[in-house]
């Protein structure tokens, strides 16, 4: 274990999905779902990956889980490279990275009892010895996610959405993972349940020292539990910084637009909203230069030809925008 290295390092991750067409099913095009994403997560830290639908944030999560192989790039867990691991070793690695999915209805097998759902990872990783031990461990998991112990003999359809999401979290906790990827884990829940689940995740993080990769489209949710935020647009990270900096002084025009879209629970508040024009370009044929240039309110000639790199603009604050290089050209909070 390297104490100085981050728990998870993702280096220039790319995932392109081929599109098969034509008579013989040859590759006719590619979806550039994730196109060079670099970040890291430290132990016990929450990193949020935000962006609108189709920007590739879920693909990043699934690539780290190795639900498919990467097109390019490297992923290190605790200094050990996991993106090219062989099947046998990979299976044991899975013990350390777990996932909670968005939809609490399709993420639990409708034909398995809660006990069997929670027992699955425990049995797979050889963590139980005998039936009594299994029962104890499953009950301990139910305690952790604040569900009644006697619910273990029920089927998923007997639970509400929030309760099901707790079962999903319990399953992710079962093997004692270091990192849990929450893929839109609270997006399908209503507001009060959402708050409960977020608080539960925060409590569990304190209790167990978990690192969380929190994938979400909702900045308002992210604000409550994250340490750092990475903003994605069309398969790339456009800005990465800690929570306070992001919400107070983000640099990237896209981040500003996202922030201005967060609803404020005050009907009298008058705000200047940044309304983006047009739709997200297709990831099959992304724009040249800066990917955001087709919708950016501050676009200038350089943006159309040269791709901006993710550069440091402050302490631990990365941003990919040409305006950062123009002296005094940064979009300051007051400008928005």
């Amino acid at each position: 274990m390297n104490a100085d290295r981050p728990l998870l390092e993702v280096n220039a991750l790319k995932k392109h999905f081929p599109i098969h067409g034509g008579l013989l099913g040859q590759v006719t095009a590619k979806v550039y779902a994730v196109d060079g994403v670099t970040f890291d997560i430290r132990r016990g830290e929450t990193l949020s990956l935000v962006g609108e639908s189709g920007c590739g944030k879920s693909t990043v999560g699934k690539a780290i889980l190795r639900l498919f192989s990467l097109t390019e790039g490297e992923v290190y867990l605790d200094g050990e490279r996991i993106d090219n691991m062989r099947a046998g070793k990979l299976r044991m690695m899975r013990k350390r990275v777990q996932v909670v999915f968005q939809d609490p209805f399709s993420s639990l097998n409708p034909r398995m009892r809660v006990r069997d759902i929670l027992a699955e990872p425990l049995v797979n990783f050889g963590m139980v010895h005998g039936r009594r031990d299994l029962n104890e461990k499953v009950e301990a998991l139910m305690d952790k996610v604040r569900l009644p112990r006697d619910a273990i003999n029920r089927f998923p359809h007997e639970f509400s959405g929030g309760q099901r999401q707790r079962i999903g979290i319990a399953r992710a906790l079962a093997p004692g993972a270091d990192l849990i990827i929450c893929d839109e884990a609270v997006s399908a829940l209503d507001v009060s349940v959402k708050a409960q689940i977020i608080n539960l995740l925060a409590d569990l993080q304190d209790e167990l020292g978990l690192a969380l990769l929190f994938i979400s489209h909702d900045l308002a949710t992210v604000e409550h539990l994250t340490h750092r935020v990475a903003v994605m647009y069309l398969g790339k990270i456009v800005e990465l910084t800690d929570r306070r900096t992001l919400f107070a002084e983000s640099h990237h025009p896209y981040t500003r637009a996202l922030l201005s879209a967060v609803p404020v629970p005050d009907p009298t508040a008058r705000r200047q909203r940044v309304i983006l024009k047009g739709d997200v370009p297709s990831p099959i044929n992304p724009p040249t230069g800066c990917r955001f240039h087709t919708r950016c309110p501050f676009v200038f000639d350089r943006c159309r030809v040269e791709e901006p790199l993710l550069r440091p603009v402050g302490d631990g604050h990365l941003s990919a925008c040409h305006l950062n290089q123009v002296p005094g050209g940064q979009v300051l909070p007051t400008a928005a």
Partner: peptide
Amino acid sequence: PYVEAAIASGTRVPVIIWKHILP
């Protein structure tokens, strides 16, 4: 997602077929 979760939980392919797909 429950099949993907099972893969992430280290379930082997034959077990996935038997426990998650066939039923």
